[in-house]
Nucleic acid binder design. Structure first.
Lengths: 141, 141
DNA sequence: TGCAGACCTTGTAGCTACTATAGGGTCAAG
DNA sequence: CTTGACCCTATAGTAGCTACAAGGTCTGCA
């Protein structure tokens, strides 16, 4: 419910009329608009994109290239993120495989991996060694 | 650089000694710790998990089951998110296919889809009618 | 010695899309 | 008339930074 107020504050929903005691009175147009927003959000579109779509859909005569670009751009961001997560999954799988249950932290392959990697060595999760471009830290001592 | 200060504030990095004029003086232990954190972050682990790992790695005699669980849990969250994004990609692809470039907003298949969906009808991106839709966790049967 | 410019310090606000809480007002039922 | 469910506003918190402001410090050069 605060979400609806939030959309109103952000300019995605028209401010509804108020009853005598200050209650918001929503009409069918508000409900439809809210469903539009929720549908876009279910596609994980940022609210800025949703707002842009709402603006575009008011000018029914204008070219819809912007609509295309917006959806296409969003699709590409989703694709890129999915690919990144897929790589991450592989890396975490490799890390996870370093340790079987039942022993102690001193012998834990996962922590070993993480600590070695922190020292700039190669690790199971990032096959290539870190060292090439590490050591960016500025020190004075 | 503010990031390092942020980690210090959040208790992930020890507060370094200060020079006479108040400058922070980092030693090799700080650098190694920071690399540990950055490595974990490159695996997209939340800072809370990184902090937990740092705590666990201090008690070298304790069981490492917690380390396992933490990494396993993170892997599962990544897997779930990746799967959700994959489904999303399909949905956005379907939506994107509703419109070819070069015509006007009044005839735009994408907007049509979104508006129809806002009225509770079935849409290309969400094959089933609106009622059965739950955010992100849905599987096609 | 003076000064420019690069770096450091602290503190604050902004980003996304909500969510939670506090402290109050309104309304309908019993 | 009270109880409890709802609504109102305003504020703060979430994650992990990033950007900016206003000032202090250090270094090199003339």
């Amino acid at each position: 419910m605060q979400t609806v107020r939030y959309y109103e504050r952000e300019g995605l929903l028209d401010t509804p009329a108020r009853s005598g005691s200050g209650y918001r009175m929503y009409g069918p147009a508000h409900v439809e608009r809210l469903n539009f927003i929720r549908h876009c959000r279910s596609l994980d579109m940022p609210l800025a994109d949703v707002k842009r779509l709402l603006e575009l859909s008011r000018d029914r005569g204008v070219s819809c290239d912007d609509v295309n670009d917006l959806v296409q751009g969003h699709l590409e961001r989703v694709r890129a993120k999915r690919a990144a997560l897929q790589a991450l999954e592989t890396q975490l799988g490799a890390l996870r495989a370093q340790c079987d249950a039942g022993h102690r932290v001193a012998d834990c392959g996962i922590l070993e991996e993480l600590i070695h990697a922190a020292q700039g060595e190669a690790c199971a999760c990032h096959p290539e060694p870190h060292g090439a471009r590490a050591a960016g830290a500025r020190k004075r001592a």
